[in-house]
Write a protein that binds this DNA or RNA. Sequence first.
DNA 1: ATGAAAGCGCTAACAC
DNA 2: GTGTTAGCGCTTTCAT
Lengths: 339, 339
Amino acid sequence: MNYDERDGRPRPARTITLTDVAREAEVSESTASRVLRRHGSFSSRTRERVLGAAARLGYVPNRIAGTLASTGSKLIGIVIPSLTNIVFPDLLRGANSVLEAAGFQSVVAVTDYDQAREESLIESLLSWRPAGLMVAGLEHTERAQAMLRGAGIRIAELMDTDGQGIDIVVGYSNREAGRVSARHLIARGYRRIGYVGHGVGRDLRAAKRLEGFRAALAEAGMAIVAEAIVTAPSSVGAGRDGLERLLRRSPNLDAVYFSNDDMAIGGYFLCLARAIAIPERLALLGYNGLDVGQYAPQPLSTIRTPRVAVGETGARLVCAAGRPTVVDLGFELTAGATT
Amino acid sequence: MNYDERDGRPRPARTITLTDVAREAEVSESTASRVLRRHGSFSSRTRERVLGAAARLGYVPNRIAGTLASTGSKLIGIVIPSLTNIVFPDLLRGANSVLEAAGFQSVVAVTDYDQAREESLIESLLSWRPAGLMVAGLEHTERAQAMLRGAGIRIAELMDTDGQGIDIVVGYSNREAGRVSARHLIARGYRRIGYVGHGVGRDLRAAKRLEGFRAALAEAGMAIVAEAIVTAPSSVGAGRDGLERLLRRSPNLDAVYFSNDDMAIGGYFLCLARAIAIPERLALLGYNGLDVGQYAPQPLSTIRTPRVAVGETGARLVCAAGRPTVVDLGFELTAGATT
DNA sequence: ATGAAAGCGCTAACAC
DNA sequence: GTGTTAGCGCTTTCAT
């Protein structure tokens, strides 16, 4: 590569354009364009000429120009709150596999669970005129909602069905997941139930699970006995610390519900370290169905969530025409050995 | 939103362009453009008019057009092999935080550890005329290398320094990480050492670690006594299964080196389940320094890798002018309780 | 401080 | 089957 004498920046040897290819192939630009996009008709002879010229010159089409000239782009915007929580890489993975197969590129933005940030990222993504936008969750600022509604493209809201969507909604009910968790613990006979969570003000879906959990307990005339909230993103360390604090204050709990599996694994590790018998002395219940919990000596009781499938389905729908839809992919409680 | 009667596709109410804003504000397009990009000069009165008009009309600039008209885009392409392995979300996270602050958007592509796929994804990303491209690893097909060299933009190759880079290289030596791991086990007196890995033909960096590991053993007149390779992506389950197979064949190993922490945690769980004393009866050594390993009852011995920092540094360099560089961010062996 | 005009590189009618 | 002609929506000289 050539570097500029003054600033050392890589210096491009003037980019090859379609005009160059057309000239080299001795055809018009439109013909070259047709061949390169295999669209419209052309003789096999011109085909060879154009393809040959493009290869010889190392032509890379400029999709920026292409997109501007045609109408729709082949970009899909994806807005997620975090990359730390494995949930969202899983979502991305599902979405990406479908999008790639359909010839789309994904442009990713991470909000860090901040709605104001989400708003500005949505605006920024929209300025790339994507063919569609996928976003985690149903809660957005007024202005974000207005932008999404007015964008004139398909919008998919993912991972949650508790609320009103804009166009496409793919997920499952977090509130119901919380209820099911509570009913499970009640059915197994646990009565002194604690909760260990991460900062829930920002993770709205965790908040909904907790809400459902409380509601189901209340229906049985029960309530959460004690809780520890770690003001940090969810992690194994946070879960371990949270449970430790909780047990110090309320040593005679018989079960603990965690905001997710990362947290629950931390709790599990604490119990191992302290030789607290699971589930006899203390039961643990997580959420997400992570691999790591399933291969522990005692598989973690948890709720499996269809994260990859949500990404796939969302991507499929966002690329296609159709009426607004809600797709509930459900979840599944897996009773392991910790309850 | 309006839906088309026939196909149900969301129907845009003609998109607002700069022309509309200019007309509404009763100024020329160029003036409107200057105000909106706060670039060049304009009276505060026009400023108000333009900003007001833009807000009133709900104008969202079209960056596709903007990019084409100016030169450089504000996109950075990122090519990673996987989203399953937490390493790459971490890398993305680091990169994203820097890019976002600098006003860039990232376009992500996932190769699934497939070089042919990488080649076509690089081509596809390049067609968006990004300002720079970040890619994991130093090994690419001939054609991919040629495209990267010829793109005339900054290229950052990440996570590995064992080899020749194109422009910017940020990472550390995987080979050396393997060597250090072997020396650690030797120094602790282990002599019958096994290896549990995932399909290494595709994960080139894992292959380099193994190579370094073998080399350092050889220098001490030793060799890997037995190994189990799981032909699947690395995971806790794969590690557990791998160790189980390995111990069945070679029950008297005294230490096992794993291709990464996910695998090692799986091995750790097997030992807990089988009541195999760690490290007296069997020592375990991982790689990556994942949170989950550090909060286990016996913290996992491992090598901490600066994944987020690699993403940050790579992003910083890829956005800036400068000469080609190699930045070695190093790694750190953390002796936990499992060796 | 503001406007007019010329593209950026490509696609998409519409002629031929 | 192929070429000509207009733009896509914006930025950027260059006048004024």
